[in-house]
Design a protein around this nucleic acid. Structure first.
Lengths: 319, 319
DNA sequence: CCCTTTATGCTCAACCCTAGTATAAGTGGC
DNA sequence: GCCACTTATACTAGGGTTGAGCATAAAGGG
């Protein structure tokens, strides 16, 4: 793939309809979950905000959706994807009287690698969703900025019945009034904030509490991906896609914590993955831990035959 | 919606690309899970097999994907949908040098109602997937027909390494050699059978063990939906979409069993849903049970605030 | 050799689920 | 009214899992 091809023109195959492919590519390094962003998408009208790699489907020559996605990603970041999963198909509507755009979105997991393509780089997910990272406890932005802003919005709603429904959503999604926080509800939270007009993508003025914004609807794609991932981690061994073939249990735990956005009880985590048959020791050790050397483990493929839902059963969080 | 509009022509909006919408609509009556099928889809080249309701998106006038889906369903079956959820987007490829079709598929849950539209009707899901119904124990077709056919396919594979991988899939998906049966893996099982060429849709001769076939790739859509549903039932209160507002615990259990495709321990099921706060008694009774009258319950909406994953925690199956 | 750091082993109590047994409250036949 | 039968509902003993914490092992640095 030549660098010069990166910004190839969008093929003009239809006057009315276009299908775009878009990927959130995730890696975790030293406890930081990061996504691949590119500077300026192909779209001529693009703003300068971070964007996910994306590109249109050419209905005449492209062979499959996923293959096309991979090729766009390769062109824009020189990254070759391993694990890829389809997320959701969004209707982007029409630009005025023009093109109707449909985007099919994907989640990809990789081990972090340097990207040499200009404009492409890695970016902490939680920069876009500051309220989602509970590893150091409940983020202060929630009670200091988000809940007050949502309350103000609720107060402005004309229909009091609707206001009551929206208040319930707020309480359930953001864990207010004794409702427990549910990490998986990333998308629901984002959509509530969007609907409340608090997000720059929905026309709001930028504000640090509501995170960095992205081009187009890309932040919604990231929210969808994170929701999916936080759910899936519990019943599928997806974490291992983000790890090297050999890893310590602490590395594994850090990846799980990065995704779940919460801290876990170390001894119990170890017990769950070891007794759950998810990993096997390799007999080797890592000596660069700063303390007692740690055993190196590998993913134990056989668990797929033994357990119906082999995931890292997240033990309860610790503050 | 006039009946005469039902078979309206496909709008010709693009020469190269079309987006279709397609729904699996499910209802459960007296323990039978049934899907809505229509006789002959819009496609001129359609065969006479059962099809799901579907229709193309008109990129110029249709406002959203889901709205368009609802309107196609209403036209083809006069059904008005409640709960709708997007499933997956399939690439149908091109017909020769012609149109490239992308289909966005949906799952809808309704309470069964009579459909008055000609050609539309309800059909037992397990007619299409005989191997998925374990309510009376492991279906004999699995060991009598499916496993032997898969083994024959494995034996014909030229590459022995690939054969080994495919054998592992067979064992995991179909619960062979001590591997537990996992109800959620509906799609994986269907795709393995498809890949092995055992399904009429993949060119095989029709055979009762492999279930009734459907038009286009519609059986794959149903498999996707059933997979999703079997997973979701455990962490979201979706079952209630299929029930009337008041129901007995036995009705609830029958719906859960119909979806999960397995029988459940009655007393434990009752305890799980009652103590889990999923239902509340209405104080009324149903006297048509044939024995002691049963209390009528209703869905307890408040559980959404109390529990992170309020679903019918399927107790272990009973044979 | 002591101190700090990280890894790892172990335990106890609370809770939950499984697989039952037992009891309640209707039906229809006589 | 009594009986056999059906379905609904209550209760429980035993095993397994989880949550939380204490205790020990094995490195490096002074």
């Amino acid at each position: 793939m030549l660098a010069g091809e990166a910004m190839a023109a969008v093929p003009d195959v239809s006057d009315a309809l276009r299908v775009d492919l878009c990927a959130m590519i995730l890696a975790v390094t030293e406890g930081t979950p990061r996504i691949l962003t590119i500077r300026s998408p192909l779209d001529a009208a693009a703003d300068q905000r971070d964007a996910l790699p994306w590109g249109p489907l050419d209905p005449r020559t492209d062979r499959t959706l996923e293959r096309t996605l991979r090729s766009w990603v390769a062109r824009q970041s020189r990254l070759s994807l391993g694990y890829v999963e389809q997320l959701y198909t969004f209707d982007e509507g029409r630009a005025g009287e023009g093109l109707r755009r449909i985007s099919v979105t994907y989640l990809a997991l990789v081990q972090e690698q340097t990207v040499s393509q200009a404009g492409a780089g890695w970016c902490d997910v939680y920069a876009f969703f500051p309220w989602e990272d509970w590893r150091e406890g409940r983020p202060p932005v929630i009670d200091e900025a988000i809940i007050p802003a949502l309350n103000a919005w609720l107060a402005r709603l004309p229909d009091s019945e609707q206001a009551e429904r929206e208040r319930e959503r707020m309480e359930i999604y953001f864990g207010v009034n004794g409702v427990p926080w549910v990490p998986e509800r990333v998308l629901e939270r984002y959509e509530l904030l969007y609907q409340a007009g608090l997000i720059p993508e929905a026309g709001a003025k930028s504000h640090p509490a509501f995170g960095r914004s992205m081009a187009l609807n890309h932040r919604r794609v990231v929210a969808t991906a994170l929701s999916r991932l936080r759910g899936k981690i519990k019943y599928r061994p997806v974490v291992f896609e983000l790890l090297p073939p050999r890893f310590t249990l602490w590395q594994l735990q850090q990846v799980a914590e990065a995704l779940a956005g919460m801290s876990l009880h170390k001894q119990n985590f170890r017990r769950l993955v070891e007794q759950g048959g998810l990993v096997a020791s390799t007999g080797e050790f890592a000596y660069d831990t700063g303390g007692r050397p740690a055993q190196l483990f590998r993913f134990r493929r056989r668990v797929l035959r033994e357990r119906p839902a082999p995931g890292v059963g997240l033990p309860s969080g610790v503050p």
